[in-house]
Amino acid sequence: MTDQNQPRPLPAPGSQELQGLVPDVETRAVYQVLYESREAPLGMGEIRNRVELLTGKANLQTDRRLRSLRTYFDVPATPVAGKSNGFAYPLLGWKPDADERTARKAIRAADRALTLHAYGYRCAACGRSPKEDGVKLVIDHKVPLDLGGTNDPENLQPLCVEDNHAKQALFADHEENAGALRGAMGLPEVHLRIGELLKALAGQPVPKELIVLVAREENHGDPTRRLRELRSLGWKIAFSKRKDGRRVRSFYSLEHWESWPAGGPQAAVVRLERARKRAQRRRDD
Rank of each mutant, 00 (worst) to 15 (best):
G45A: 13
A106N: 14
E17P: 01
N177K: 07
L21K: 01
Y35T: 01
A88W: 00
A184F: 00
P11L: 08
E154W: 07
K236F: 07
P7M: 04
A77L: 01
A58F: 09
L156F: 03
P9M: 07
H117M: 14
P96E: 12
N59W: 07
G43T: 11
E189P: 02
R278H: 09
L147E: 09
R65T: 07
L181E: 02
Q4K: 14
A184S: 11
P188Q: 06
T71P: 00
Y35E: 04
K199C: 06
S232Q: 11
Y121R: 12
W235T: 03
R246N: 14
E52S: 10
K241D: 08
L197T: 02
R283T: 00
G20M: 10
T150K: 13
L18S: 08
R38H: 08
G221V: 07
R65M: 01
K95H: 12
D63W: 02
G45M: 06
N85F: 15
A262N: 08
G186L: 11
L233D: 04
L227D: 00
Q280D: 15
V270S: 05
E132L: 13
D133E: 09
K243D: 08
R112E: 14
N177I: 08
E189F: 02
R112D: 09
Q32L: 03
G82C: 12
L92D: 06
K167R: 12
F73L: 05
D163Q: 07
P207Q: 03
T2W: 10
A103Y: 10
A103S: 15
R249C: 05
R128L: 14
R225F: 04
L53R: 09
E229W: 00
T78Q: 15
W260F: 12
A180G: 02
I47C: 01
Q204G: 04
A110L: 12
V270T: 13
R108K: 15
R283W: 02
T78C: 12
K131F: 08
Y119P: 03
A77I: 04
I194R: 02
K167P: 02
A124G: 04
R249F: 07
P144E: 01
A29S: 08
R242M: 09
A172Q: 07
N49K: 14
G195Y: 01
M1R: 07
R278M: 10
S259Q: 15
G127F: 01
S37F: 02
L114Q: 12
L53M: 11
R282W: 10
G45Q: 08
G56F: 04
